[in-house]
Design a protein around this nucleic acid. Structure first.
Lengths: 342, 342
DNA sequence: CTGTTAGCGCTTTCAG
DNA sequence: CTGAAAGCGCTAACAG
């Protein structure tokens, strides 16, 4: 029984009142008596009118109650990554409470314009793979909150990545030892490779570079050589990318004594790889991770890593967005998790 | 540099052409010469006009390129469930190719009306916790595709749950043996409990009941007692719900010889529980799962389960939705995975 | 408290 | 190819 769609005007006519009254009944209860309002609402229900058309409201009010979550790259990957999906959970819980809806947007899209006009605001999780999107977002006069990177003029949610990386590296490095780094998204390449002399991605926006800075600072303090041949670029945490890098790093001779990994997924891959080759962790190889995902606590040995709360990040980002103009950037805490891999 | 928003009218004036021409340049290339069109588009770029306002287009055209994915309950849970997030990946990959956007909608929301007016269609993943939503969706004159349940008049994507359950149960049950069932969403309760005499949830729509039917059919064939005290209701796969049920079932005396689980997450919880109590699997306890998630292949012993491709489900659902009117329901294949738990 | 009315920004027909 | 004009369905002044 698919009914013909009624408009507010139809309803007003049918009930013999003005359109304004119907509109007010739905949107501004203070503009009419409670009794009248109840009557109208009841009558609307009766005749099958479920309220003002949302598309028209969006145009008229310039507000849709939709928030776009711009992910770093494609949606597919992000939903399957434990860190990202935990973040999404945080965001969605706050939005749901605020009666807002969540639109997932891919950071590798051509443009943001096809939603920019009707969305109420943007949460940007990681620098969008397509840098044009960041540019477009800045031009927009809509609230934007960035997470794990910065965009001029937008409040952001971050942890102190440099410091976190420094601290964990200081724990893991041996004085004058050999250390390698399995980095995440360091250069512009879709495949796993060593960094060598490739230009690093825009270092202002990338958390990877804050982490790299922290590792470097610690390596200097510990008199470890810094060598671009021992720094890997991994395009994303999942898939086989990390495994390839893990195999490469473990087949170097002499082998690094410490490997600093920019995500837990990478570190777990390395750990599994090492154990399967009979390499003793941490006696023969020390490994550190980054993120603090659940799975990293369930391995033997437990991964030594930097814990950050992705749920909290998501919640904070959503709250910041809802605050609107006067929102300030937030730096969240992290914690070192002392596992058994160093 | 946040610019004032230009309208199509402004642009038409500035360029000294009619609004229709500008509109056509963006939407209907066939209505004007290629050269003219290029000129106009270039000029628009120049002055910073990024195309017709989308909110207005939505109202005018009645089309938004947004598809709502209605999840069974809250978004938070669904994103963290491996089966659901894999499904989402399938959906989003197809939508992205079709230039559609994905709006996540919670199945425990009060109503669907706040997006129904502007969304192009709905994919419903599992019966919405709030049954009113299903009712509203049926009334709507917008395409709806359901997955893992049926809604009158809507094309659906399913596997043959009854048969899958029957087949795996036939493998696992012993003639005349004792069997328990750890069921998913069998009754209306937010906590883990035995089913006893509680009324089962609307059995038409719930896949759990198709599975239950299959288990029952196999149990009859194998002359196993069917006993409501040995059927558990678990509200959702994650969290502690499954662990509670696992503990209960393992503490019965005499213990069931076979436990049929309606999801891999539940089965894995039971497996871990059993192993930690020193119960030998499969010698002392046989376990079957349902879904075929990756993690279930990594355990020792590997879980014996029904594999269904959630990616394919997602892709199929999205394609069906894009087909529109003439879409037919689809029944996807499943496969038994012979692990080591029976 | 109610009715009237001017748009929100666009698309599309229609006549030129 | 252009220009004029009629809405899509609604909201928010404003005047009563």
């Amino acid at each position: 029984m698919k009914k013909v769609k009624l408009t507010l005007k139809d309803v007003a006519e049918k009930l013999g009142v003005s359109t304004a009254t119907i509109s007010n009944a739905f949107n501004r209860p203070d503009q009419l008596s409670a009794a009248r309002r109840d009557d109208i609402l009841a009558a609307c229900k009766e005749i099958g009118y479920s309220g003002p058309n949302k598309a028209a409201q969006i145009l008229r009010k310039g507000q849709s109650n939709i928030v776009a979550l711009v992910l770093a790259d494609n949606i597919e990957y992000m939903v399957s990554d434990p860190v990202a999906s935990t973040f999404i959970r945080g965001v969605s819980s706050v939005l749901q409470d605020a009666q807002k809806h969540l639109l997932l947007y891919a950071g590798n899209a051509q443009t943001i314009t096809d939603v920019a006009d009707f969305v109420d605001g943007f949460i940007c999780y990681g620098a969008p793979q397509n840098p044009k999107l960041g540019e477009e977002l800045r031009q927009l006069s809509k609230p934007v909150v960035t997470v794990d990177f910065n965009l001029e003029g937008c409040p952001s949610v971050n942890i102190d990545n440099e410091n976190a990386a420094y601290q964990i590296a200081m724990e893991a490095l041996e004085e004058g030892g050999r250390a390698a780094i399995l980095g995440l998204k360091l250069i512009d390449s879709p495949v796993t490779c060593r960094v060598y002399d490739s230009p690093l991605l825009d270092s202002d926006s990338a958390i990877s570079h804050r982490r790299l800075d922290g590792y470097f600072r610690a390596m200097k303090r510990k008199n470890c050589d810094i060598n671009n041949e021992w720094i890997w670029h991994i395009p994303e945490s999942g898939g086989n990318f990390a495994r390839q890098a893990a195999n490469e790093v473990l087949s170097i001779s002499p082998r690094p004594q410490t490997v600093l990994c920019m995500s837990d997924m990478i570190a777990l891959e390395l750990l599994q790889c090492a154990l399967s080759k009979g390499i003793k962790v941490p006696q023969e190889l020390k490994i550190t991770g980054f993120d603090g995902i659940d799975e990293a606590r369930r391995t033997r040995p437990v991964l030594t890593t930097v814990c950050q709360s992705s749920i909290e990040k998501g919640e904070t980002a959503a709250k910041l967005l809802l605050e609107g103009e006067q929102a300030d950037s937030v730096v969240l805490d992290f914690e070192l998790l002392n596992g058994g891999t160093i």
